[in-house]
Computed example of a mutant assay.
Amino acid sequence: MNWQHDSVTAANALTARWVKTCSGGSVVMAGAAAWPLLAHLASAAEGRGRGELQEAVGLDAATASQAARSVLSIMDGSTAIRSALGLWTRPDLPLHPAWLATLPAGVHGELTSDPAADQLRLDAWAKEQTGGLIADMPLQLTDHVLLVLAMALTVRTTWLRPFTDGIDLFETGPWAGREIHVLRRSTHVLDRAGVADTPTGPLSLLRVMGTDGIDVHLVLGDDSMKPGQVLTAAMDVLAGLHPTTPAGLLRAGSPGPGMTVRHGRDHAPDDVLNVTVPRFTLASTHDLLDLPEVFGLATVTDPSRGHFPGISTQPLAVSQARQNAVATFQATGFEAAATTALGAVGVGIPPNTNTRPA
């Protein structure tokens, strides 16, 4: 088995299912910051809950922990990516050494009898691991929480060729009639942009190359397409499932959303790709329990019985599963971060429904 290839494919498949649920508005999400946590849960679960988690993870639950470590090792191999796993448990919660050994060394800490103090410590962990991009842990600690499993993921890159800042007024598209901050850049490398033909409609794509092997792909769909359709189609395009025509081969006119090809007189004979894109910062908070079918969390949240005998002899159920995420696209580079956290309680205790505002 090719652990790295299969693990990355499975993690991407989770992201693809998640983005299909996007219905509108601005959103940022990171399936890669949730998948390893679900994999570690799947390896320790039993019964129907194990089957649901295994389906969400997309790999055999028996080898899911090994696959999760493979994904983390890939991330650790890039200087532009920083990932961290964290586990905190109450001292009176017995843990099976075999499951604990599947986690990276040094990630296990303790929860005390003071949830407020523990919250500050976990918030500080999230802030430190994301370089300040995310200020707090997405879950709320209570006296009932016995275990917290979390992951922080950060990506930072600097553009090989920076943009220049400006302000523009758009006449058409999603920003029609609005004066917004934009970024501009010109290049003679036309294949950085193109139009993809997908079953849901044409997509305009722009590849922005960063340092340390990180590329950011900007995608714009037709006004009639929903965000979930655009994102799903974009992932299929990047996977090579739909054909893309480079900008240099497009005919004059408007071959794709937000893209115009025209001929003009110039003293230089070379074609030029002129790019104007919005400068943006997006932040989102997600409750993964709102989408149990995506994340395999339907059964394991039932507090009437335990679901993770592989973790502890104490019966446990998932009570919280949330993610905070942020992304910034600016003139000099791109940075994004996500922190995902799962909380577990002893069975028979109602799951905590109190959450902090985003």
Rank of each mutant, 00 (worst) to 15 (best):
H5E: 15
H5W: 12
A10E: 09
L14R: 06
L14N: 09
T15D: 11
C22E: 13
G24T: 08
M29Y: 10
M29S: 07
A30L: 02
A33I: 02
L38F: 05
A44Y: 02
G58W: 05
T63S: 10
Q66I: 05
R69P: 01
V71I: 15
I74G: 08
M75F: 13
T79K: 15
T79E: 14
I81Q: 07
R82K: 09
R82M: 03
S83L: 02
G86T: 05
P91S: 09
P91Q: 10
P94W: 02
P97E: 06
L103H: 12
G109Q: 10
E110A: 15
T112L: 09
D114C: 04
P115T: 10
W125Q: 05
E128I: 04
D143R: 14
L149S: 04
L153S: 11
R156S: 12
L160T: 03
F163N: 11
D168S: 15
P174T: 06
E179Y: 02
I180V: 15
R185Y: 08
H188M: 04
V189Y: 11
L190I: 02
D191V: 03
D191E: 11
T198W: 10
P199R: 01
G201Q: 06
G210T: 04
G213W: 09
G213T: 07
I214Q: 00
I214H: 00
D223W: 06
S224M: 05
M225I: 06
P227S: 07
P227I: 09
V230T: 15
G240P: 03
L241V: 02
T244N: 05
T244F: 05
R251Q: 10
A252P: 02
G253A: 01
H263C: 05
V272E: 14
L273D: 10
L273R: 03
F280L: 11
T281C: 06
T281K: 08
T281P: 00
L282K: 11
A283N: 02
D287F: 00
L288F: 04
L291T: 09
T301M: 01
G306I: 00
H307R: 01
F308L: 01
G310L: 09
L316N: 07
S319R: 04
Q323T: 12
V326S: 09
A327T: 09
F329Q: 07
T332D: 13
G333I: 01
T340M: 07
A344T: 04
V345D: 14
G348D: 04
T353H: 06
T355L: 12
R356I: 12
